[in-house]
Design a binder for these strands. Structure first.
Length: 296
DNA sequence: CTGGTCTCCTGATCGC
DNA sequence: TGCGATCAGGAGACCA
C-alpha cells in the first residue's frame, strides 16, 4: 500500500529513534519474511513457503549493529549499519514499520520481526521496540552484507521518482510501448510510483492512462515529470496518504489523501471540468481518470 | 527483451 | 447476524 511518500515519511519519522543507536537484540518471528543473498527462494513467496529459505541468524537482522543511515530508493527502505551490513524493508501492500511508545510491548497481530533498540551509551537499557508487521505478507526483509551489495541490488531500480528529471523520464518511457500508466508502475523504469500517485500524476499532466509511453512527445514528458515530482513532494509534505492502514514510524497517520484529485473518486466530478471521472483496469490495477481532461 | 496474466495473503465492506 | 463475493496502496513468476 505504501508508495514513495509513505516510505519516505516512515524513513524520516524513524530516523530520530534509530540513528546512532545500537540494536541490542533482534528476533525473526516468521522465517520466510527474510531473504538472504543467494537464497534459492529468490524472493518468490511460493518458494519461500516451501521452507527452503536459507537459515536466518540474528546477525542478518543487524543484531549488535549501530545504525548509521536510513536510506530510501523508490519504495524500498534500507537500514545501513556502521559495519556495512544492510537490511532492506519492503512494505508491500499492508506493511508497517514503526517504534512502539516508550515502555510498551508489541501487541498487534502479524508481527514478523522485532528489534530491541538500545538507549544512548550513558543509559544503554533498552530504549524502544522496533516492529515490522505485514498482515498480507506481500512485503518482506532482505539482508545484504555490504553497502556495495545494496547498491548492486538497487541498480535494478529506475531513478527515484521524487527527483526524476524530464530527460531521465524520457529515457525510461522510450523503452516502453505499454500504456503510460503501466510504465509508471514498473519499478525498473521509475522507482516509487504506485497506483495512487500514478493516477494523480497522469491527471495533473493531462495524459490519458492508455497513451503509449514511447509515443509521448517531449513537452508532455516534461509535464509528466513535473507532475510526478509535485504530486510526490506534496504527499511527502502531508505525511503520506492514510487510506486505511498506513501509519508512519511513530504510528501517526498522514493527511495526503485529502489532496487526491482522482484516486478512488470514480463517478465524482473532475476538479477541473466537473464532468464525471471514470475508471477502468490498466495493468491489473483500478485506474481513475478524466476522459475530458486527459488525452491520448 | 517485452508485455500480459496469474498468484501470493488477510481483512474490510457490501449485497443478500 | 451471517455469509459469500469483491476489492485493496505491490511485485515476482511464468508464458507467449
Amino acid at each position: 500500500m505504501p508508495e514513495l511518500p509513505e516510505v519516505e515519511q516512515t524513513r524520516r519519522s524513524l530516523e530520530p529513534h534509530l540513528l546512532g543507536r545500537t540494536i541490542a537484540a533482534a528476533e525473526l518471528l516468521r522465517r520466510d519474511m527474510l531473504i538472504l543473498p543467494n537464497d534459492p527462494a529468490g524472493g518468490n513467496a511460493r518458494h519461500r513457503r516451501t521452507g527452503r529459505a536459507a537459515r536466518a541468524a540474528p546477525e542478518h537482522l543487524l543484531e549488535s549493529a549501530t545504525i548509521s543511515q536510513m536510506r530510501r530508493r523508490g519504495k524500498q527502505l534500507a537500514i545501513v549499519a556502521a559495519d556495512g551490513r544492510v537490511l532492506v524493508v519492503q512494505l508491500g501492500m499492508s506493511g508497517q514499520f514503526f517504534v512502539l511508545p516508550r515502555g510498551e510491548a508489541p501487541t498487534a497481530t502479524h508481527i514478523h520481526a522485532r528489534w530491541a533498540i538500545a538507549g544512548r551509551s550513558r543509559n544503554p537499557a533498552p530504549h524502544r521496540i522496533l516492529v515490522f508487521r505485514d498482515p498480507r505478507r506481500f512485503g518482506g526483509l532482505r539482508f545484504f552484507p555490504t553497502t556495495a551489495a545494496l547498491d548492486a541490488h538497487w541498480e535494478s531500480l529506475g531513478p527515484d521518482a521524487l527527483s526524476i528529471s524530464a530527460s531521465d523520464l524520457a529515457g525510461a518511457l522510450s523503452r516502453a510501448s505499454r500504456p503510460t500508466k503501466a510504465a509508471l508502475l514498473d519499478q525498473g523504469l521509475i522507482a516509487g510510483v504506485g497506483n495512487i500517485y500514478a493516477d494523480e500524476a497522469l491527471f495533473r499532466s493531462g495524459i490519458h492512462p492508455l497513451a503509449r509511453a514511447s509515443r509521448l512527445r517531449a513537452p508532455r514528458i516534461d509535464a509528466l515529470a513535473e507532475a510526478i515530482r509535485a504530486v510526490l513532494a506534496q504527499a511527502v509534505a502531508l505525511g503520506g496518504s492514510t487510506l486505511r492502514d498506513y501509519r508512519d514510524g511513530s504510528m501517526s497517520p498522514g493527511t495526503a489523501q485529502t489532496a487526491l484529485e482522482v484516486y478512488s473518486r470514480s463517478g465524482q466530478p473532475c476538479t477541473r471540468c466537473r464532468r464525471a471521472l471514470r475508471s477502468m483496469t490498466v495493468a491489473q490495477r483500478t485506474t481513475t481518470f478524466c476522459p475530458t481532461c486527459q488525452v491520448r
